[in-house]
Design a protein around this nucleic acid. Sequence first.
DNA 1: TGCGATTTGTCCGTATGTATT
DNA 2: TAATACATACGGACAAATCGC
Lengths: 228, 228
Amino acid sequence: MNSLNIKPISKNRTLRANVAEQLRDAIINGDIPPRTKLIETQLSELLGVSRGPLREAIRQLADQGLIENIPYTGTYVIDIKVKNIQELYSFRTEIERFAFSLVWNKRSSKFYSDLTNQHKRLTQAIKAKDSVATIYEELELHSVVYDHCGHDLLRETWQRLRSRLHLYFTLHQKAHNRSGPKLKAHDAYVTLAAGENLDAMLEHVSEHMNQGYSKVEKYVSMIEQQLK
Amino acid sequence: MNSLNIKPISKNRTLRANVAEQLRDAIINGDIPPRTKLIETQLSELLGVSRGPLREAIRQLADQGLIENIPYTGTYVIDIKVKNIQELYSFRTEIERFAFSLVWNKRSSKFYSDLTNQHKRLTQAIKAKDSVATIYEELELHSVVYDHCGHDLLRETWQRLRSRLHLYFTLHQKAHNRSGPKLKAHDAYVTLAAGENLDAMLEHVSEHMNQGYSKVEKYVSMIEQQLK
DNA sequence: TGCGATTTGTCCGTATGTATT
DNA sequence: TAATACATACGGACAAATCGC
């Protein structure tokens, strides 16, 4: 009843936006695997749109870093590389620490409630063993601090990373789909974020990221070797 | 002879890339002032291209944050707002400190030479009172650390900020075109970057940014009041 | 080296949707 | 309410570039 449905009722009014959203979702959910070549004529027929809006959507996803476009050659879903993961995690650490520094002295009651509510959703998804929802809710949990820090540029930067991060999470999940994230992995995160010790929070962010990184690093380096 | 020409011989092979570059340059050089509405039919005729590539270029510049698109309504050059400037500078501080931390222990001889050469170019531009070149060379100087830190994601993020920063610099310059940057404003920056005290460098970056921010803040808040 | 097939890039004419007046 | 201006979308056509043979 009072639980808001997660569905983002974003009625994208333009076709290009809808196409971009559909393609993005298909990629980050693993339905279109890395290295796949996106052929315009095929896609436009599949999606039921003309090449115009499709090409504009492709341009947007390329700017977001989910696909790579080589002129006169083709557009490909990005590849997995250890270096990219490492960069994603190290950069994430920096900006999330920055976000907490910004939000710390102006944390509102809504911040606390958003945090706990989102933690609840994540816990439920984990308990339900819904791996797709778990990934989404974990990213949503981390989005809370960006949404409340009042720094549009920072939030925008986070959103750009989020898609790629989502893709890596999905691929990792699919590789060994039984080991989801630990049930209590985010307890300390939420507790500290609602506490009064900023330094402890910042330190925890760094640790949390390192743990996440080492979790996927081995898998990715293995994949990279296989493809080599 | 040995001095490489600055001209980026980037023969953009696709029309959309050329159009995007032309539009971007026109905006950051102030030839197309903020709030200007970009009308597709006019632009496509002016540039001598069809609406297809033009629209794709517009989508790219919108993703870069230089223009804003409102569906079925129009595309406008971004507005100037104090909050945006403040965000730009605070975020820049964070990522440039991060970049120096990354590069510190692997600074190569090329890093030092790039740094001093670029400082020389900046100095020459200032002496020549070439305000357009001065802005470009100052941004190039700051680009050195990103180019050498070996973090593609960080460099990519910097490039995204750079266009907006360039625009603000240009507008500030045009507002009172006699006060260019001080001749020795970057001496300490270069000296510290080539030195051995990382903490001093990081501290200087923060100070350097604060100075830059306060320089444009008053001007922008004035403009913002005028337009209100 | 060249040739042909495939795909991307580009142009144009037209029709429709939307906001504004 | 109607009319206008413009963005959006479609479909067909052709040019240009890449790749495999």
